[in-house]
Structure formats: structure tokens, C-alpha cells
Design a protein around this nucleic acid. Sequence first.
DNA 1: AATAAGTGAAACCAAATGGTATCTCTTTAT
DNA 2: ATAAAGAGATACCATTTGGTTTCACTTATT
Lengths: 115, 115
Amino acid sequence: MPPDLQPTFRALADPTRRDILRMLGDRDMTIAEVSDHFDMTRAAVKKHLVVLGDGGLITVRAEGREKINSLNAHALRPVADWLGWFESFWDTRLDALKSAIEKETSNDTGHNNND
Amino acid sequence: MPPDLQPTFRALADPTRRDILRMLGDRDMTIAEVSDHFDMTRAAVKKHLVVLGDGGLITVRAEGREKINSLNAHALRPVADWLGWFESFWDTRLDALKSAIEKETSNDTGHNNND
DNA sequence: AATAAGTGAAACCAAATGGTATCTCTTTAT
DNA sequence: ATAAAGAGATACCATTTGGTTTCACTTATT
């Protein structure tokens, strides 16, 4: 059974959360460290981290009194796969191919050479 | 300047809207046709279509009294690019490489990890 | 001309979202 | 031992979101 994409897409829908992901791409960070980069309270950042966790996009480990947040980019894989379904629609080479086929098809309508 | 990703990510965050996109991948549809596939009013579907339009994911053309909605998958390109930034984190081959490097690094510390 | 079909738009509603402030708990430092 | 630092939890608030109902407008159909 495929993973539930909804919590992941949901997590990605907020710009603050996307920023957090890129920050964690650089290095693991505590909640306080993440909060330092934003103009909002630590509690608000914490909520974002919970949403990211729900989407499977981060993991948290305790280290003394600190909680270290790490990027779990594997959760992006199903999202990329979902997008892949549409790849044939926006790949420019395929666009060219499609145009060619359509031109061919319209030719077929005019001159039926199939008998 | 790069396009604003926010409206697109926002549009993708709802399962109904993602379903609509896949439907439009098969063929263009009027609002009424799209609505037939969901257990909600046409007005609700219309709202979803507006959000998809804000995200650049669909285009609409008038045809008599009907409005034909088409997929514009090109708007997914920036999203795929955004995801691409993380690709190095979840590519399985790179994972293997990373594990190897980490193993090498832990060896460098002089610790024996066999005990 | 009258009616039906397709859509747009507005008012409204409950629930979710993104934020705050405050209090508590555990861990570290003086 | 006391205080400070890091984090969790809760209550609260305004706005957004996803849905509804209703009414108006334009285009086809008979």
C-alpha cells in the first residue's frame, strides 16, 4: 500500500516549513536554533516541526535537554513519484514529440492513406 | 526572478485538487464534468479550480456557455526543481555512498566498532 | 418566447491553520 | 541548592479553508 501523501503535501504547503527543510538540509538543528532564523515564537516553530514530523519529513532525537531535528528527505520520494506521473506533460522534448504527433494526426484526417 | 512557488504548493496540498489534476491529465473537462466525479457541490469544485488556477496548474477556455479546464503541467516544473534540491538526500545510490563515507570516518576516529 | 443548462458570485458556516502567551517539566550551569 | 536554558502543553485568538445554499447571468434548446 502506498504511503499517505496527504500529510507530506500538507507539510510542504507552508513557506516557513519549506525553509526549515532547506535549513535542515545544511545541518541538524535544535528547535531554538531553527527559531532563531524566524520572526516568530519558539512555540510557533515547534508547531511547524510537528507538522513536518507528521509528514515524515524530519526526525527528532533527544540529546540531553535538547531535541535535534534532522531532515528525512526520503519522505520526499513519494512526492517526487507523484509529480513524475505528470512528467510526460511538461518535458520539453516530449512536448516537441507530441506536437509532431499531433501534426501527423491532423494530416491523417485530411489524407486517409490507411487502406 | 523565480516564480512564486507558494500558490502552486498550496494548490497541491488538497487531495481533491490533486485528483482533479490527474483527471485533467486524461482529458479536458468542464466544471460540471469534474463535479460529477466528486461528492460535493459544483460550487465547491469551482473553488478548487480557482485555487488550481492561482497555482497556474490549469488553464480555462470558454466554449459557448461551457468552460473547458485543461491541465497546465508546466507549473509543476518549479515544484519538481524545488524537490530536486533534496535529491542528493534520498537518492539510494548516494545513500550507499554516504554510508561508506560515514563508516570510513568512524574508522578514522580510531574507535573499534567491532566490540 | 420560454425554458433549461452551465456557470459565476455572494453570504454564510464549521473546522483547520498559524500565531500568541503562559505555565510546567527536565536538564544543565553557577 | 538555586537559577537558567531548552522544550512540551494548553488555552486562546484571528484568519483561512472547504464546504453549503441561494440568486443572477449568459448561452442553448424547444
